[in-house]
């Protein structure tokens, strides 16, 4: 099956020497969700901007449904939809005006633009707010309209750049459902996210990127198996007890226990079973825990497992829209 998105050795360095991408390759199967997972500044947004023809790569190439993003940008543009963390919609226009304008700029007929706007406002529960200007919208409403705007032309390939960052849990769940519906209708989705949970729920294939390079690929379950699906977190009264406990718990779970102040964490594959063992060991050594918890691994855990360090945002990231200059040095990645 031909790939819907094919990326080969993409390189992008911004003025000032910030290396946003250092040679990224991956392929996305049609009709699936592909997750690009990484911390702030990893290069996720840069990859999306290149794939959506907004930015030109320095080297390497990329195709969307067989069309080259550099040589045939217009062909690519009419196949894709883009929605992002920056809620790229026009504040001064109403929701309906935004959707109609995007439809017109997609060169769709006027009557279609009108009916599609009505349809999308209804689908995203914005019918009542449709004729209000966006300044009056909440963050979640804006994000929904942003996604609606990306869907105006019924694109075959959808790029979602951190679609749920900053959203409340309920809005997040709502967006996930919409994405799942779209994929069931055959849309291919490339999603960037900082949340392992989101990637796990939506994506069938994942690429973990850091500092502009791929550090791991696989399905979410492969990835989780590699680092242990669950984290056991035990806290004590003092750092001394934590040190002792780390010694006692060595050999339980994957890798060495990590000490973080008064707490110890271990990655484990079989949560409850290993938790019992850990409790027994702690009890035998007479250590008194103040806190004992099992939690799902976070992106931090993935990074610890893959790179041995925490997923820290690098200096060049976390740009607000005001810093996002096409020609700028402080390109968000």
């Amino acid at each position: 099956m031909a790939a819907a998105i094919e990326v080969t050795d993409l390189v992008k360095t911004f003025k000032g020497g910030v290396k946003a991408l250092t040679g990224v390759s991956f392929a996305v199967e049609p009709g699936t969700v592909f997750g690009l997972l990484g911390p702030n500044g990893a290069g996720k947004t840069t990859a999306v901007r290149i794939l959506t023809t907004v930015l030109r790569p320095d080297a390497g190439h990329a195709t969307v449904l067989g069309r080259d993003v550099v040589r045939e940008p217009d062909a690519v543009r009419s196949l894709i939809g883009l929605a992002g963390q920056n809620a790229a919609v026009d504040e001064i226009l109403t929701g309906r005006e935004n959707l109609q304008m995007i439809a017109r700029l997609n060169h769709l007929p006027l009557d279609f633009a009108r009916s599609r706007a009505v349809e999308l406002l209804r689908q995203f529960d914005l019918t009542e707010a449709g004729d209000r200007i966006l300044k009056t919208y909440s963050g979640g409403m804006r994000r929904r309209l942003d996604l609606a705007a990306a869907l105006v032309s019924r694109p075959q390939v959808l790029f979602l750049d951190e679609p749920t960052t900053g959203l409340d849990p309920q809005s997040r769940l709502g967006l996930w459902q919409v994405i799942e519906e779209l994929v069931s209708e055959g849309t291919t989705v490339l999603l960037t996210t900082q949340y392992l949970e989101e990637a796990d729920r939506l994506a069938s294939q994942l690429v973990v990127i850091d500092h502009g390079g791929v550090i791991s690929t696989g399905t979410p379950s492969e990835l989780k198996a590699r680092l242990g699906a669950t984290v056991i977190h035990v806290a004590f009264h003092d750092a001394q007890s934590a040190q002792t406990a780390a010694g006692v718990l060595t050999g339980v779970g994957n890798g060495a226990p990590r000490i973080d102040g008064n707490a110890v964490e271990i990655n484990v594959e079989q949560g409850p079973k290993t938790a019992m063992e850990a409790l027994r060991l702690l009890d035998q050594s007479g250590l008194e825990a103040t806190e004992f918890a099992l939690r799902e691994p976070s992106l931090d855990d993935v990074f610890l497992a893959l790179t041995g360090r925490k997923a820290e945002a690098s200096a060049d990231d976390d740009a607000t829209p005001t810093k996002r200059r096409g020609r700028g040095k402080k390109e968000k990645s």
Partner: peptide
């Protein structure tokens, strides 16, 4: 316009560059 995310949306649309 240039410093809002909306410009990325415009650039990713098949609209004329001059618009």
């Amino acid at each position: 316009d240039l410093h809002k995310g909306v410009i990325d949306r415009f650039r990713a649309l098949p609209m004329a560059r001059s618009a």
